[in-house]
Design a protein around this nucleic acid. Structure first.
Length: 110
DNA sequence: ACTCAGGCGCTAC
DNA sequence: AGTAGCGCCTGAG
């Protein structure tokens, strides 16, 4: 396992429950600014046993970008809803409200 | 609101 | 060993 993945996992593990972060933000926090794509790969190669909340990582649009054929998209959505995160009609969540660095209390307007 | 191009490293054939 | 595509981002048109 490369050191890059280790850093990514470390950052994802620090995401508090009930909140989400984006690939780019995770990469930036890991000191890997610009490696957003690698974050997705790191999470994909992640084991089920690993205590890494990969479900709390979504794309910049605030939507789950996992392939539907794998069924992981519904799984992620389910787990996030279990943490108190609500999706809108389009299947997207509000990063202004649930975003990691985004201060709570927002969510009006988008 | 959308498309296009550039960038970064990894996986899969 | 080379090529193509990816759980993407960002900025510009």
């Amino acid at each position: 396992m490369s050191d890059t993945y280790t850093r990514i996992y470390a950052v994802v593990r620090r995401i508090p429950a009930g909140r989400v972060s984006t690939y780019g933000e995770v990469a930036r926090r890991a000191g890997l600014s610009g490696y957003a794509r690698q974050v997705g790969y790191a999470l994909h190669a992640l084991d089920e046993d690993a205590d890494v909340p990969w479900q709390r990582v979504v794309n910049a649009r605030g939507e789950v970008s996992l392939p539907a054929d794998a069924g992981l998209d519904s799984l992620q959505r389910q787990m996030l809803e279990a943490e108190g995160i609500c999706f809108d009609a389009r299947g997207r969540l509000d990063l202004k409200q649930y975003g990691w660095d985004s201060p709570p209390g927002l969510g009006k307007k988008r």
